[in-house]
């Protein structure tokens, strides 16, 4: 299990990286944390002509607050996010989600940009991006564009990023103060990708729900925003019956696939169970 031969570039700037990437016309791969790409190389399931390693581009690793958003340089490590006070305060859902991503030694290297660009539908960060209605910034030869979560994920491991584009930044809106949140996940072992994960955010005013957000991991080829389920809560409040109804609705909104770890029916069922649990917990910690 040794990687095949490839050319290797470790540019110091984003411009050089784009230039190197452009040179191979789609046959090069960006190397971020390598926690997904390197195993694929070792199995020789990926055979790029070249690797463009972003790890020496210091300017791609940062966490900044700007205009009601928290902006993450694509190369910000999951580990940095885990221990970031800004994230803990402004994006507690992301912090909670980070604990579910593999294990600490994986998070040492894994990046937020890599996790999102990789577009594994069972991954936690894409679900958080979807739940919080975040966006990403992509840079390519033709310049920079901003892509909303809903437009980014296309299917398994496929995004709307062009092969010569680099995801440079991930932007997540600051969560409203007092928002309740939870990420509920079911995996067969600790640290595994989710069989099903549900990210939930609720903002409440007394018994009313002014905002509800629900997104899935593992329930289909892309993370799914459960808008119709959210609407039930926004319409009917946060009582038990509304939660039940939202959870039931959630199961109708997903079209999961089967694999060796779980049947489609089981995944659909878990979507309902975990939606209920995530909402219950989120409501429990919501203030207002």
């Amino acid at each position: 299990m040794k990687p095949p031969k490839f050319e290797y570039h470790a540019p110091k700037s984003l411009e050089e990286a784009l230039e190197a990437l452009g040179r191979y016309g789609g046959d090069a791969k960006v190397l971020a944390g390598g926690q997904s790409l390197m195993p694929l190389l070792n199995f020789r399931l990926a055979r790029p002509t070249a690797l463009v390693d972003l790890n020496r581009i210091g300017s791609l690793a940062y966490i900044r607050e700007h205009n009601g958003q928290i902006r993450f340089g694509a190369m910000t490590r999951q580990r940095t996010i885990e221990f970031s006070p800004v994230v803990a305060q402004r994006l507690p859902l992301l912090k909670e989600a980070t604990h579910w991503v593999g294990h600490l030694p994986i998070r040492t290297r894994g990046t937020i940009g890599g996790s999102i660009a990789h577009a594994d539908p069972s991954a936690e960060y894409p679900a958080v991006l979807a739940a919080l209605e975040g966006e990403v910034v992509a840079r390519g030869a033709r310049g920079e564009r901003v892509i909303r979560a809903g437009d980014l994920f296309q299917t398994y491991l496929t995004t709307s990023l062009a092969p010569d584009e680099i995801l440079t930044e991930v932007r997540l809106p600051v969560m409203p103060a007092g928002a309740g949140y939870a990420l509920e996940e079911f995996a067969r072992r600790h640290g595994d990708f989710a069989i099903i994960g549900i990210a939930a955010v609720v903002v409440r005013e007394g018994p009313r729900c002014t905002m509800a957000r629900l997104a899935t991991a593992g329930a289909g080829p892309v993370p799914v925003r459960l808008r119709a389920a959210e609407q039930i809560l926004e319409r009917e409040g946060l009582g038990e019956a509304a939660i039940e109804a939202a959870a039931r609705r959630a199961t109708e909104l997903v079209t999961p696939d089967a694999d060796i770890h779980a049947s489609a029916d089981y995944r659909r069922h878990l979507t309902g169970v975990l939606t209920k649990r995530a909402l219950t917990r989120a409501i429990g910690v919501a203030r207002g």
Partner: peptide
């Protein structure tokens, strides 16, 4: 044994 597919993930 139904469910004959390997799991979906970007991991090998």
């Amino acid at each position: 044994v139904s469910e004959p597919r390997a799991s979906f993930s970007g991991h090998p």
